[in-house]
Computed example of a mutant assay.
Amino acid sequence: MHSEHTSNISTSTVTLSNPAGLYDPAPNGYSHVAVVQLPARLVHIAGQGGEDAQGRLSPVFEDQVVQALANLQRALASVDAGLADVARVRVLVVDHDDRRLELLARQMRAYWGDAGAPTCTLIPVSRLALEGMLFEIEAEAYTR
């Protein structure tokens, strides 16, 4: 049964919500709707993979997810933004399956926590830009 309650989480610029009548996406680490209050500064973060500063990639999917999310945080911080400013992410997953979805959802919940995760589109792919790359995340953030 669907909840008749709409949940809202808001920063000064981005309001995330999950309308009544839609399933609860929180266990999967995202929200259904993001509303951005304009005027705002729009920040596009290119796809961040699981490589460290030396370009090394772990062969472990979850390690790459953790590193990519840390890389996303670094990119946001470089322009005085943070995870709470992110309205939308797109994730690309090589060899997507239920296990990888669960690992990704757990990390998304851990990184965004009670702030609520942004809207998300997951795109399964057969390969990414670098050999051995298993995960990539790009983001759109809005700040004042």
Rank of each mutant, 00 (worst) to 15 (best):
D63Q: 14
R88P: 00
A81W: 03
G55N: 07
V65F: 00
R106C: 04
V89K: 02
M108C: 08
C120I: 05
L38F: 14
A87F: 02
H44S: 01
A81R: 03
R74K: 15
D97N: 15
L103C: 06
A46M: 05
D114I: 06
L76E: 06
Q73D: 12
R41P: 00
A68N: 06
T119H: 06
G49A: 09
G55Y: 05
I123A: 13
D63K: 15
G116Y: 01
G49P: 02
T121M: 13
A84V: 06
Y111S: 11
E62S: 14
L72C: 10
L57I: 05
L72T: 12
L122F: 06
G82K: 13
V93W: 03
G82N: 13
N71P: 05
V66S: 10
L103A: 15
T121Q: 14
G116A: 13
Y111I: 05
V89Y: 01
S78I: 12
D114E: 14
L83A: 05
Y111F: 14
V93N: 03
Q107H: 11
G116T: 03
E102S: 09
L122I: 15
R74W: 11
R88I: 11
H44Y: 15
Q54P: 00
P39G: 11
Q37F: 07
P118E: 13
V60W: 01
A77T: 10
P118H: 11
Q107R: 13
D97W: 00
D52R: 10
I45P: 00
A75L: 03
A70Q: 13
E62F: 00
D80P: 01
E51G: 09
S78F: 02
G55Q: 04
H96A: 15
H96C: 11
A53G: 03
L92V: 00
P59V: 07
Q107Y: 03
R100T: 14
D63C: 07
V65A: 08
R90S: 08
V65T: 11
V79L: 04
A46T: 07
A53K: 10
V89R: 09
G113S: 06
D97G: 11
H44M: 07
D97K: 00
L72P: 02
A105Q: 06
Y111N: 08
Q67M: 14
S126V: 09
D98L: 12
V79N: 08
A105D: 09
W112T: 10
L92W: 13
V60A: 09
A77L: 07
W112V: 11
P118F: 04
V89E: 10
V43G: 03
R41W: 00
E102Q: 09
R56F: 02
P39Q: 07
V93E: 04
L69V: 09
